[in-house]
Design a protein around this nucleic acid. Structure first.
Lengths: 221, 221
DNA sequence: ACCTGAACACCGTTCAAGT
DNA sequence: ACCTGAACACCGTTCAAGT
């Protein structure tokens, strides 16, 4: 009978279970909390056992990041309109990285993770649909992917450093206050930026960047 | 006589000397080589002595990064034409981060370093000169700075992982070969990208991204 | 005031020993 | 084949003790 084994501990180690546990630790306690000792404790095993399934910490982070990106891309519902589809993909990644900032850190340094192929193909296909000429496709793809990964990672790093909403307001308010006290002769632009810094929405700002890039791409069509 | 003291050891510790030594270690041996023990050895002192001048490793990295950016910005000769000036600033940062990849890593996570004010003001002032309307200035500034820091950091991370030119060719060749073997039905765009990947110039690619963004900004003028 | 260096509380990774 | 956990070679940081 199948349910004879229902009480059986199903916790034999596997790469999937290890990666799953790693993601849980990374999400709840941050990058510094992911140690082989903490991971072993959570999996109720010895630290060395993990090395039977995973080569080292780098492979662990790579697998965890790949999971996050693959899931995020699977959740994206990109419609037929190419510009909207690119925005949807970009926002999907932005939100995933916002939720899993450590994945953003990893991605900025290792942009050739397998799951990034889904992102590249998703965006690239829409560039074709937009009629971007061959000679500009590489550059258009490159600027979009660089911006998405870079800006999303930077945003998530900020958010992680300032866990609560009040922390964020206080921090940005503090930076803005500093900016407003800069020498007006030397920093006229930054001084005027201060007000916007205080009450901008990160997601909107990110998307506005995508739109500006798409507008630029449209000019080389 | 002044030269009576010429033989005198001038190596009293100071934050500047410590930061200078840290930059030397980071540049020659990479991020992982910067330890307080290595730093103390190079400065011929005890590890703990450094803490008298620097609060912790974070402050050390912040100061080192700030030095690099400030120097790079001081070296930029930005002419009167706004678009050219923005390109010059962007390239100055790109080259500095290429030379000091660890600064790129730091900058992607801590974009509010003081020296970045010079970058923001330099770019922002040119956006004013370009006639970017008030409501678009924040977004235009944001997309440029995010892209510059993000793309330069990603490029430098790649370059650091592949120290020699042949390593880089081999790596990109390998990635391109993988891309060419992808299922044409699922990855038509990425497959076609492979050829470009093999022989592109990173600096040109970066600059092409700046140009696309500037073209987008021009459309909202 | 500034420096020394041992000590503390960690790490990632290895490996002999177990089952 | 897979797991255990002590051991190794490191870290950043602290701090009593020196000058």
């Amino acid at each position: 009978m199948a349910n004879k084994r229902i009480e059986r501990r199903t916790d034999a180690l596997s790469k999937e279970r290890i990666v799953e546990a790693a993601i849980a630790i990374l999400d709840s306690d941050g990058e510094n909390a992911l140690t082989f000792r903490a991971l072993a404790a959570r999996l109720a095993t010895g630290a060395g056992a993990i090395y039977w399934h995973v080569a080292d910490k780098d492979e662990l982070l790579a697998a965890a990041t790949n999971d996050i990106i693959a899931r995020a891309m699977a959740d994206v519902t990109a419609g037929a309109e190419p510009r909207e589809a690119i925005r949807a993909i970009a926002l999907g990644l932005f939100d995933a990285i916002d939720l899993h900032p450590w994945a953003g850190t990893r991605l900025s340094r290792e942009p050739f993770e397998p799951a990034m192929l889904l992102v590249s193909e998703g965006i690239g296909g829409r560039l074709l649909a937009l009629g971007v000429p061959e000679r500009e496709r590489f550059n258009a793809w490159s600027v979009l992917v660089s911006y998405i990964v870079g800006a999303a990672g930077q945003n998530a790093a900020n958010a992680r450093r300032l866990p609560r909403e009040t922390d964020r307001s206080a921090f940005l308010g503090g930076v803005a206050a500093q900016w407003e006290q800069l020498d007006p002769a030397r920093y006229p632009f930054v001084r005027k930026l201060a007000a916007k810094l205080r009450d901008h929405d990160d997601r909107e700002q990110f998307l506005a960047g995508i739109d500006l890039i798409l507008a630029g791409i449209a000019t080389v069509r």
